[in-house]
């Protein structure tokens, strides 16, 4: 009985077999990226060619997180086979990661807390009053 509703796509009997060479290449790339990220965190600043990186804090953070995403992409696409999977699987894989970034809307709150449109209502330096409450031991 052919199911119309699931006739397309990933099919058990003849799934995409990822060639061994590709897996090994991915493994190599992941190891390389791992070494790169360690190096980026432990840059020998005394070495003249890297001296300028010393104050590039934002750049170094972006490099670290960029490499992490690159590695994640390699694992998701090759090891987890999303690159060769059905559209539905891709939707789930990508949807999950996209949705989790939505949580980062919360960051807007933290970035804009000091901002106060009404003059004279600005909070002081601390956002909460000091709590002088008797505390249970």
């Amino acid at each position: 009985m052919a199911h119309e509703s699931h006739s397309s796509g990933h099919s058990g009997g003849h799934a995409h077999v990822i060639p061994q060479s590709k897996l090994i290449a991915t493994m190599g790339a992941l190891t390389g990226l791992m070494l790169l990220t360690i190096f980026a965190a432990q840059v020998p600043y005394w070495f003249p060619a890297f001296a300028w990186l010393k104050d590039q804090h934002l750049l170094m953070n972006l490099i670290a997180i960029g490499i992490a995403f690159w590695k994640a992409w390699l694992v998701v696409s090759i090891f987890m086979g999303v690159k060769f999977a059905t559209k539905l699987t891709r939707l789930f894989a990508i949807g999950g990661f996209v949705w989790f970034t939505l949580m980062f809307i919360t960051m807007i709150d933290y970035f804009t807390r000091p901002w106060e449109p009404v003059k004279g209502w600005e909070a002081g330096n601390s956002s909460a009053l000091p709590r002088n409450v008797a505390r249970p031991e």
């Binding site: 807007i108 709150d109 970035f111």
Partner: peptide, 20 residues
């Protein structure tokens, strides 16, 4: 999923996020 902050208008959530 994009409206949870309306439970927090009188918490110390920022004014801008409250408006959003």
């Amino acid at each position: 999923f994009l409206v949870w902050g309306h439970h927090m208008f009188i918490s110390s959530q920022s004014v801008l996020q409250g408006v959003i």
